[in-house]
Simulated assay, not measured.
Amino acid sequence: MELEITPYKKSDFIETDTGNKVSRRSLISGSQNIVLGGKTIVHKKCTIRGDLRRAGPSHQASVLIGRFCSLGESSVLRPPYKTYKGVFSYYPLKIGDHVDIGSNSIVEAASIGSFVKIGANCVIGRFAIIKDCCLIEDNSVIAPNSVIPPFSHVAGGPPAKIIAQLPESTQEIFEAQSKDKYAKFVPT
Rank of each mutant, 00 (worst) to 15 (best):
G37H: 04
A61P: 12
Y81R: 15
Y84R: 12
C69Q: 13
Q60E: 15
G50R: 10
G66Y: 06
Q32Y: 03
G50K: 08
C69M: 11
V87T: 02
P79S: 14
A55H: 12
R53G: 10
H59L: 14
G30T: 00
P80R: 08
E73W: 03
L36I: 07
K44D: 12
R67P: 03
S62M: 11
H43F: 09
L36C: 01
K85N: 14
D51L: 08
N33M: 05
K85E: 11
S70G: 12
T47H: 08
L77K: 02
K82W: 01
R54G: 01
L64I: 15
L71E: 10
V87G: 07
G56F: 06
R49T: 14
C46N: 13
L36R: 09
K45V: 02
Y81E: 14
F88A: 00
I41Q: 01
S31V: 07
P79G: 00
T40Y: 12
N33D: 10
F88P: 02
A61H: 10
P79L: 07
L52D: 08
S89M: 02
S74I: 06
I65E: 06
I41H: 00
E73H: 12
P79M: 04
V76P: 03
V87F: 01
K44T: 14
H59T: 14
H43K: 15
I48P: 10
K39C: 07
I48A: 03
C46G: 08
L36W: 05
K82C: 09
T47N: 06
Y90W: 03
F68D: 11
L71A: 00
T40N: 01
Q60D: 11
V76Q: 00
A61Y: 01
G86A: 14
L77R: 02
G86K: 11
L64C: 07
I65V: 11
K45F: 04
Y81M: 15
K45G: 05
T40E: 06
R78T: 13
F68H: 13
G86P: 00
S62D: 11
V87C: 04
R78P: 02
S89D: 10
